[in-house]
């Protein structure tokens, strides 16, 4: 699903962010992406959603070498991914429904299917009463759930989420984790960047730990250790 081979990353002539990054994520896996702030969690996610390209090494995604993709192929690949951005990136002038519908419409889905699917999902994340609300009228937590709904509406092969439970209370956070688990059981590969040790402890998925400009795979948190 995801394979990094000796990938290096730096922005322009800036400091090296990753060096010799080598790891792979098998299809259907579920990983937490952890590490201290500023270590490069967001950069790794950006690599994964093709917003930036490696400075060196090989990165292949969904069976394709990323370096060989043209713009059209990048678009097609992104349709197989869902991304929850830390700052949500909702479109302010569109209702919750239209925001969540966007990936389907962009991919040319039929309008009648779009509406029912989206309404159903929004109800599932507890926003049934806010379908027609603009993002600005929603709380941070509600906006986050809209962003998550938008990321999962297409049942992506790969789901990337940057602090998806950062703005919601624990109960909703757990509910969202169940949603991710549910998708994972349907075959979606999931990577969730988080600071929330509680979630990591509770859901016991393997971790990608960023340290020393590299990534270390850590087995699921044992009950006793951190």
């Amino acid at each position: 699903m995801v394979r990094f081979q000796r990938v290096g990353l730096r922005y322009g002539n800036g400091p090296e962010i990753f060096r010799d990054l080598t790891f792979s994520l098998p299809p259907g896996s579920f990983h937490f992406l952890v590490g201290p702030s500023g270590a490069g969690k967001s950069s790794l996610l950006k690599l994964l959603y093709l917003a930036i390209r490696p400075s060196s090494g090989t990165f292949s995604l969904l069976g394709r070498d990323v370096a060989s993709l043209d713009r059209e192929e990048v678009a097609m690949m992104r349709r197989r991914m869902g991304v929850v951005f830390q700052d949500f990136r909702l479109l302010d002038h569109l209702s919750a429904l239209d925001n969540v519908a966007l990936p389907l419409r962009v991919a040319g889905a039929k309008e009648e299917q779009v509406r029912s699917h989206v309404a159903e999902l929004l109800a599932w994340v507890g926003l049934a009463d806010h379908i027609h609300s603009l993002p600005a009228t929603l709380s941070g937590g509600q906006q986050q759930r809209v962003a998550i709904a938008r990321a999962v509406i297409t049942r992506p092969n790969l789901l990337l989420a940057d602090e998806p439970t950062g703005n919601v209370d624990d109960m909703i956070g757990v509910r969202l984790m169940y949603l991710f688990d549910e998708l994972n059981k349907l075959g979606t590969t999931v990577v969730i960047a988080t600071h929330n040790e509680g979630l990591v402890q509770r859901f016991r998925h393997p971790q990608l730990r960023i340290e020393n400009r590299g990534v270390r795979l850590v087995p699921p948190a044992a009950r006793a250790t951190a």
Binding site: A75, M77, R78, M81, R89, V106
Partner: peptide, 16 residues
Amino acid sequence: QEVIQVLSLIGARDSY
């Protein structure tokens, strides 16, 4: 630009 970036990140083709 921001909206266009989002569209592109969720898989919109340039032609869209």
